[in-house]
């Protein structure tokens, strides 16, 4: 089904993106022309078919690898924060969060 402009707005809010009116219209038409391709999926009978998350699981059992609980006690703050847009006293800074 085609997306309404309201849905475009709702998804934009979820995605933390903003579009002006003309951008919303362009987004709407491009997304909807893609969803025309999606309609052919309706014809496929997927009853009893398991979704495929990890492709190779088609031929071998894929299980989560677990790692031993050995802590790296090094302090990597400098490297981890070297790209921070705003930081002070070892904190990342953001506009005040209101609870």
């Amino acid at each position: 089904m085609p997306l309404s402009l309201e849905e475009i707005q709702r998804i934009a809010n979820l995605s933390k993106l903003a579009f002006d009116e003309s951008q919303s219209l362009a987004m709407q038409s491009k997304i909807n022309s893609f969803f025309e391709l999606v309609e052919q999926m309706d014809a496929v009978d997927t009853a009893g078919v398991e979704p495929l998350f990890h492709p190779v699981s088609v031929v071998q059992e894929i299980a989560l690898r677990l790692q031993d609980d050995v802590a790296d006690t090094g302090n990597h703050r400098a490297g981890n924060m070297q790209n921070a847009p705003a930081a002070e006293n070892g904190y990342f800074l953001v506009p005040k969060v209101i609870e």
Binding site: Q67, D69, V70, A71, D72, T73, N75, H76, R77, G79, N80, M81, N89, G90, Y91, F92
Partner: peptide
Amino acid sequence: TNSKIFSRAAIGFGAEPNTHTSA
């Protein structure tokens, strides 16, 4: 636990901010 659930950074309550973080 000694380390975090998905990284091996050490668990650290009350440590200096962001010193117990991995990438």
